[in-house]
């Protein structure tokens, strides 16, 4: 284990889902859910992965978790390669990478009490043996996520959405992971509860120093808690920068379109909205050249044939757009 290497390194991650069809059930097509994604996360850092639904951001999270095998690419956790670990040797990885899911209702087993839900990782990873110590540990976890201790014997259906999400966060905290993947962890909650859960996540990160991979479609949420942001479109990262740069000086037209869609609380504010037309193209048959060319307001000939590569456009700021390399290409004014 080398301390110089980032906590998580993802190199050219690909995940293709086969589609079976025909009489014999043979593979007829592929969904290119994630098609060559690379990024790193340092210890204690928050990286947000944003994009429209269906762009493959959740698939990235689940691939890192090894909830299914990856098609291609490499994933390193603190220097150890984890994408090709055999199924029998995943437990050490599982202890270090945890997950909080979007839906607080389906992510908790309806037939298990809070105690049993939180005890499961503790027992699996051999953190505590059972009995008194286990109960104490579970109560401690409940304190950390600000759940009342007397709720330990309750079933998930007795809680509100926000409380259930707290249980989910406590479960992810239980093994003391280095990285917690928050897969749309606040998207299903009301605005006020959303803010509470985000505050909780930020507080917990301050306290325990774990890194977060925060998967979201909501840039406004992301702005509160992230250090860096990666924008995904149709299975690829189109722009990656630290928060300040991305929100102030984004390069990619898609990022700008997303930013211009973020609501601004001032009704008199003048904004230039970039309205994208059409839907995200199918990841089964992605467009040639730049994947965004079918909806890009600044499309030109080169975009349709040549795929733009992620290139550095500033310190720690990469973007995949041909406009970045055209003199005077950055003419698009920033939105709101």
């Amino acid at each position: 284990m080398t301390s110089e290497r980032p906590l998580l390194e993802v190199n050219g991650l690909k995940k293709h889902f086969p589609i079976f069809g025909g009489i014999l059930g043979q593979e007829t097509a592929k969904v290119y859910a994630v098609d060559g994604v690379s990024f790193t996360i340092d210890r204690g850092e928050t990286l947000s992965l944003v994009g429209e639904s269906g762009c493959g951001k959740s698939t990235v999270g689940k691939s890192i978790l090894r909830l299914y095998p990856v098609t291609d690419g490499e994933v390193y956790l603190a220097g150890d390669r984890i994408d090709n670990l055999p199924a029998g040797r995943l437990r050490p990885l599982r202890r270090r990478v945890q997950v909080v899911f979007q839906d607080p209702f389906s992510s908790l087993n309806p037939r298990m009490k809070v105690r049993d839900i939180l005890a499961e990782p503790l027992i699996n990873f051999g953190i505590v043996r059972g009995g008194r110590a286990l109960t104490e540990r579970v109560e401690l976890l409940m304190d950390k996520v600000q759940l009342p201790r007397d709720a330990i014997g309750r079933f998930p259906h007795e809680f509100s959405g926000g409380q259930r999400q707290r249980i989910g966060i406590a479960r992810a905290l239980a093994p003391g992971a280095d990285l917690i993947i928050c897969d749309e962890a606040v998207s299903a909650l009301d605005v006020s509860v959303k803010a509470q859960i985000i505050n909780l996540l930020v507080d917990l990160q301050d306290e325990f120093g774990m890194a977060l991979l925060f998967i979201s479609h909501d840039l406004a949420i992301v702005e509160h808690l992230t250090h860096r942001v990666a924008v995904m479109y149709l299975g690829k990262i189109v722009e990656l920068a630290d928060r300040r740069t991305l929100f102030a000086k984004s390069h990619h037209p898609y990022t700008r379109a997303l930013l211009s869609a973020v609501p601004v609380p001032d009704p008199t504010a003048k904004r230039q909205r970039i309205i994208l037309t059409g839907d995200v193209p199918s990841p089964i048959n992605p467009p040639s050249g730049c994947r965004f060319h079918t909806r890009c307001p600044f499309v030109f000939d080169r975009c349709r044939v040549e795929e733009p590569l992620l290139r550095s456009v500033g310190e720690g700021h990469v973007s995949a757009c041909h406009l970045d390399h055209v003199p005077g290409g950055q003419v698009v004014p920033m939105a709101g």
């Binding site: 600000q146 709720a151 007795e158 809680f159 509470q196 406004a220 702005e223 509160h224 973020v262």
Partner: peptide, 21 residues
């Protein structure tokens, strides 16, 4: 309150004890 409009409220209502059936 921030530029984007989400007020980060102090945790309160969500922490009330759960309803007993």
């Amino acid at each position: 309150t921030t530029q984007s409009g989400y007020a980060a409220a102090p945790a309160l209502a969500d922490v009330l004890p759960p309803v007993r059936q």
